[in-house]
């Protein structure tokens, strides 16, 4: 843990209200991003992110520092989101291939080519449409698969960090991640450009290597 963050956590544990506010402001966007990815609804995601911070505050004294605050915090966010998902009972886990192969065969799905996106990068219609497609694709994933792909793709967490945050073995993380990615890939296939997409290039920049 970085010393500045350790200091911030220490002040929060001591009941420093301004430190807690600082902590919230530091992590609120990230918490919201995960919550939105899980719940796909702005109001629900804001509620869940706030609830997660309330839990963080109430359980701050139980945080021992054995794990990083980062993973401890995400575990709380994920658990709150899963609770919200179950309350809404909107999650419909589907074994991959079955649904998407049918969708893949649909003729009415208009591909969003990478070139088109490059020519019109600010077109909101495309963004909204793509968001709907992603929403539908994510909703078909189970809570566990959705959690792991969001922690990896949105937060950029390593397998080890995800395993710690979710409380599963690294092998399980890999298995779920591969499964979730494959599902999304199949769902989004009609919208993907075979090669040369600007987004793919940007994503490629994020690939890191272990030293």
């Amino acid at each position: 843990m970085k010393s500045a963050e350790a200091d911030l956590i220490g002040r929060c544990k001591a009941g420093d209200r301004s430190a807690f506010q600082e902590l919230v402001e530091k992590y609120q966007r990230r918490a919201y991003g995960i919550a939105f990815g899980m719940l796909r609804n702005r109001d629900d995601a804001l509620d869940a992110a706030q609830e997660a911070f309330v839990k963080v505050f109430r359980n701050m004294r139980t945080f021992k520092g054995d794990s990083s605050f980062y993973t401890w915090f995400y575990r709380i966010v994920v658990n709150v989101c899963i609770d919200h998902c179950r309350k809404r009972a909107k999650m419909k886990p589907v074994e991959y291939d079955e649904t998407f192969q049918r969708r893949d065969e649909r003729q009415d799905v208009v591909p969003l080519s990478g070139n088109t996106r490059s020519m019109h990068p600010g077109v909101k219609f495309e963004q909204a449409e793509l968001s709907k497609v992603l929403h539908a694709a994510l909703e078909t994933l189970s809570e566990n698969h959705r959690t792991i792909i969001l922690l990896r793709e949105v937060e950029g967490m390593s397998y080890e960090q995800i395993a710690e945050a979710v409380g599963v073995h690294i092998g399980t993380v890999m298995s779920r991640l591969h499964h979730a990615r494959k599902n999304l890939q199949i769902a989004l296939k009609p919208y993907l450009e075979a090669s040369g997409s600007e987004y793919a290039k940007r994503a490629g920049a994020g690939v890191r290597k272990k030293s």
Binding site: S131, I149, L188, R202
Partner: peptide, 21 residues
């Protein structure tokens, strides 16, 4: 290539949403 595009689309979608809040 496809997996990288999937990652990029997911990140962009979440990032756009977070920026709008």
């Amino acid at each position: 290539e496809e997996l990288m595009q999937v990652s990029a689309l997911l990140r962009e979608d979440i990032s756009t949403e977070v920026d709008a809040v």
